[in-house]
């Protein structure tokens, strides 16, 4: 909660600083099982922050904690501090507004059971936009940016769930873009997408970078190398190391396990 002048000043400072998201000593537990612990990292503005690591490293749980998707999951508890623009997210008074500012793309595309048009217009409508012409503009812009417009412009009124897997994933990206998010989190978005579409989405992400911070969780280490400015390596519930992507991929590592993973010796 922002109350005193001092706090206001510190928030203002954060607005100006290059850091979008700070994670301090975060641990996530499911009952008595620890999924991930001791996570400290910063995500800067206008960067793509890659997170790589084998299955069960806690990557997805970590993303869930960042927009408080754990609220409705009683089994999941989050310790430590997550600061979004300098505000601790566990103190925000309107969690829905927080989520509204953070875009999420899930591993398997989830087209809401609505038409293509309504999928993309969902968030603008939540924000109270009623004007059809205004919605039309937003829908076209978002679908164009996610490289889907040409394929669906003649059937915006058909169900989103009838699209192919790759198209649905681009639909969910269009939906996330309609939020005009300050932070976009992608959780292994290419898992159900063909290579050509994957490359198209990667191009879209590069174009988006000047406007937002992007967290890219990926199983494909080469994808992290292609896209991420900095990369974190998660393993068995801890963050092994964080570094400039190029450095990590050229062997300038602090922990040899990072190189072992990148070069495919395990995981």
């Amino acid at each position: 909660m922002v109350s005193t002048a001092e706090d206001m000043a510190s928030v203002q400072q954060h607005r100006d600083s290059a850091v979008k998201l700070e994670v301090r000593d975060v641990a996530i537990r499911y009952g008595s099982t620890t999924a991930i612990s001791g996570i400290n990292l910063d995500v800067r503005k206008n960067e793509i922050f890659g997170i790589i690591g084998p299955a069960n490293a806690g990557k997805t749980s970590f993303l869930k904690a960042l927009n408080r998707m754990n609220d409705f999951d009683n089994a999941m508890s989050v310790d430590g501090e997550i600061l979004f623009e300098g505000t601790n997210i566990s103190d925000v008074r309107n969690v829905y507004a927080l989520r509204n500012r953070i875009g999420v793309v899930f591993p398997l595309p989830v087209g809401l059971p609505l038409t293509i048009y309504e999928n993309v217009a969902f968030v603008p409508r939540l924000r109270g936009i009623r004007d059809k012409a205004e919605l039309d503009v937003i829908v076209e812009r978002c679908l164009t940016r996610s490289a889907l417009w040409d394929e669906v412009k003649d059937r915006l009124d058909s169900l989103g769930s009838l699209l192919s897997g790759g198209q649905q994933q681009r639909l969910t990206i269009a939906r996330a873009l309609s939020q005009e998010p300050e932070l976009l989190m992608l959780d292994e978005f290419s898992i159900a997408v063909d290579p050509v579409t994957t490359m198209r989405i990667e191009d879209v992400l590069k174009e988006l970078k000047p406007e937002m911070s992007i967290i890219l969780v990926t199983n494909l280490v080469q994808q992290a190398r292609r896209l991420a400015d900095r990369t974190a390596f998660f393993l068995d519930g801890e963050c092994v190391e964080i570094g400039d992507t190029e450095a990590l991929f050229t062997g300038q590592v602090e922990d040899s396990r990072t190189t072992d993973y990148i070069e495919g010796r395990f995981g």
Partner: peptide, 21 residues
């Protein structure tokens, strides 16, 4: 549940998620 999660991630309140999805 994935519908609920997706709509929640978009910032829908619980009633909006129920009513619209």
């Amino acid at each position: 549940d994935r519908y609920r999660e997706a709509a929640e991630a978009l910032g829908g309140t619980r009633w909006q998620v129920i009513y619209k999805t």
